[in-house]
C-alpha cells in the first residue's frame, strides 16, 4: 500500500513526466490550446501508458528469460507503436469526435517519449505487474494534470494583453517554464 502511494505521489507531482522529467513535450505544447482537447489527449496518453506498462511487463519477462535485456528499448518501441495504432483505430470507430480533436497528435503518442519513459522506469525500478500498471496510469494522470493545467493557463494568457513579439508560442513556452518551476516545489514531498 505504501509503495502504491509512493508511486502515485512520485508520478503525479515529484517526478511528473512532463514538468520534472521533460518527457513528451511535443503533445504538451501542441495539444494544449484548449482544455477539452488537452483533457482528451491526457486521457488517451493515460490509457496508452497503462496499457503499455502492462503489456511491456509481460514482454520484459520473455526478454529476461532469454537473456535479451539489451533489446528492451527496441522491443518496447515496437510494442508501444502497435498499441497506439490499436487505440487510434478504436477511437476512430468509437469516439470520432475525440479522434478528430486529437488529429495528428494521436499518431504522435507513438513517438511520445513519456510512454517509453514510463516503461523503462518500470523495468529499472523492478516493479511487479500491479505496480508497473499503476505507475503507468499514474504517470499518465500526471501528464493529464500537467497538460490540463497548462491548457487553462494558455486559455487565460490568450485573452490577456501581451507584447506582439511574445504572442502565441513564445509566451506559452515562458508559461510552461514557470509551471515547471512551480512543480519543483513538490520535490520536498519525495519519500523515496
Amino acid at each position: 500500500m505504501e509503495a502504491i502511494f509512493g508511486i502515485l505521489i512520485s508520478a503525479l507531482l515529484t517526478q511528473n513526466f512532463i514538468l520534472v522529467k521533460f518527457y513528451g513535450i511535443c503533445p504538451f505544447m501542441g495539444v494544449s490550446k484548449k482544455i477539452d482537447t488537452a483533457l482528451g489527449m491526457g486521457l488517451a496518453v493515460t490509457f496508452v501508458m497503462a496499457l503499455a506498462s502492462a503489456a511491456c511487463y509481460g514482454i520484459n519477462l520473455i526478454l529476461i528469460a532469454l537473456n535479451l535485456e539489451y533489446m528492451q528499448t527496441v522491443v518496447f518501441i515496437l510494442a508501444i507503436a502497435s498499441i497506439v495504432q490499436v487505440v487510434e483505430m478504436f477511437l476512430k470507430k468509437s469516439v470520432p469526435a475525440l479522434y478528430k480533436a486529437l488529429g495528428v497528435f494521436l499518431p504522435l503518442i507513438t513517438t511520445n517519449c513519456a510512454v517509453l519513459g514510463v516503461v523503462l522506469v518500470n523495468v529499472q525500478q523492478g516493479y511487479n505487474f500491479l505496480l508497473s500498471t499503476i505507475n503507468g496510469a499514474a504517470g499518465g494522470l500526471g501528464f493529464t494534470l500537467a497538460i490540463v493545467l497548462f491548457a487553462s493557463i494558455r486559455e487565460r494568457v490568450n485573452r490577456s494583453e501581451c507584447p506582439e513579439c511574445f504572442k502565441g508560442f513564445p509566451i506559452a513556452l515562458i508559461a510552461a517554464g514557470l509551471l515547471a518551476l512551480s512543480f519543483m516545489g513538490f520535490s520536498g514531498l519525495s519519500i523515496f
Binding site: 533489446m71 515496437l78 502497435s82 490499436v86 483505430m89
Partner: peptide, 20 residues
Amino acid sequence: ILGGLGLIFGLVLAAASKVF
C-alpha cells in the same frame, strides 16, 4: 524474438483494422 513479436503485433493490428 523480434521478428516473432513483429509478426504477432502485425496480426493483432490486421485483426483490429477489421474489427474497428
